[in-house]
Amino acid sequence: MPTSTVTVDQLIAEYAGPIAELIGLTATDYEASAGGLANLLLAAADEVTSLDQVGDWFREAAADLTAVDRLGDSGDQRTQRLLVRVDSTLYEAKSDLELC
């Protein structure tokens, strides 16, 4: 469940492995960073059909993670808002994938 304070490390721990496994990717092939998680999500988006909402969520989360990668995971309000949004988005995407 999404929380109010989020770090990149928490997102990686919570979502990288399960999403990669559900899609058929290997999480350890991607760097353990905001940029690495963004790359994993973009690769995962390429694996789902173009009409699937999950792919859109992966792309949205990847865009936010790319912004976090550029800003740095300093914990400022702007970064935290992005990370909370990523958490919420990935929670929904992972939940949908698990139903398939």
Rank of each mutant, 00 (worst) to 15 (best):
T28A: 05
G72T: 11
D56R: 09
A44Q: 07
A32L: 06
L51A: 15
S95I: 00
I12A: 02
A32F: 08
A13T: 06
F58D: 14
V86G: 09
T49Y: 10
V48D: 14
V48K: 06
P2I: 00
Y91L: 00
T26E: 10
L90E: 01
A62E: 06
A63R: 12
Q10V: 04
A38S: 15
S4W: 03
A16H: 10
V86L: 05
A27R: 04
L11A: 07
L40G: 07
I19D: 08
I23S: 03
L65M: 13
T28R: 02
W57Y: 14
A16Q: 12
S4T: 12
A32Q: 10
C100P: 10
A61V: 01
C100N: 15
I12H: 09
L37D: 11
R70S: 15
V68I: 12
I12W: 13
V54S: 11
T66D: 13
Y30K: 03
R85Y: 04
A43T: 12
D69K: 12
Q77N: 15
L82K: 11
L65A: 14
R85G: 07
L99W: 06
W57Q: 15
A38C: 11
E92K: 05
A27I: 00
A67V: 14
L11H: 03
T3W: 00
D96A: 13
T7N: 06
L83R: 01
T89C: 02
S74A: 12
D46V: 05
